[in-house]
Amino acid sequence: MTTNLPCPDCGTDVSPDDQFCEACGGGLGVQAPVDGCAACGATEIDQDGFCARCGFRRPAARDRIDLDLPGVAGVSDRGLRHEHNEDAIAVRRVDGCGEVVVVVSDGVSTSDNPEDASAAAVEAAADTLVAALREGDDPARATRSAVVAAASAVAELVRDKPSDNAPACTIVSAVVSADRVTVGWVGDSRAYWLDRDPDAPSSCLTIDDSWATQMVAAGLADEETAFADSRAHALTAWLGADAGEVRPHTITVRPTGPGVVLVCSDGLWNYLWDADSLAAQTLPLAMTAPLASARALTRFALERGGHDNITVAVVPFPPRPASTGSTQE
């Protein structure tokens, strides 16, 4: 009897002999768990997860995640100041039509078990998106259903673990199809369109549900004043049992030329928020090497101090056609 393991990308059970996931095409070798201690190589790990020789704790599975699928890559990193990675990322390919789905969520660190919230959100949203797109749903409609499904998944967490400070998180999703990019979000995680042509405009596709952004949008403060305020990053909308009715924002753009869709948590954009600067830093590498590009952006945020968890997903546009898997490197 062979023991099946969950695919690190999509959770589908896969055979240990498989090199790629049947469901999402993710390369399974990318995330093979390290045997023994990552610090000293000793094989004995105690029941508390510490190395019996050097005492290092085996890095939590979520401390650092590198995802590399055909046509999409993502990195999620604990950063340098937080003890846990409360960000989550899910990446899927909708087989047949070549659409790519990316979902990023950032757990609100002042809530209880924020890592549960973000994990539940990305799983629910990605599952819903893939199912709806397979059914032939329009991406905008599928996106709204996905955000609503994520919201209920997060709200339901308090059923098993009652809490005065319900688990909460942001969400941002992107569906990258052959002719359009559809983004949905709640909170301050972002999606950017970065144009391959340096003369064409790049832009942030999302509008943060944050105090500062809302003040600017309402014309009550200029950007500089608003972002200097201590309340600047306070969320005005989120997912969670205490969030009230969730209204997903969606936007669809139809790029006229090649570029990349960048989806990220504020652990990145706090250090680099301007779309043109992001484009200059990311392109053209990201067109052909999305994983290298996602890693470079993560490293950039770490070098700037890594104050928050950092999650970055990079999807070249137009998406690569669905592959058979066996030709992947």
Partner: peptide, 15 residues
């Protein structure tokens, strides 16, 4: 007294 490690690393200093 333990050997210092990287920021964010967690070590068991004693059981």
């Amino acid at each position: 007294e333990v050997n210092p490690a990287k920021v964010g690393d967690v070590m068991l200093a004693g059981r």
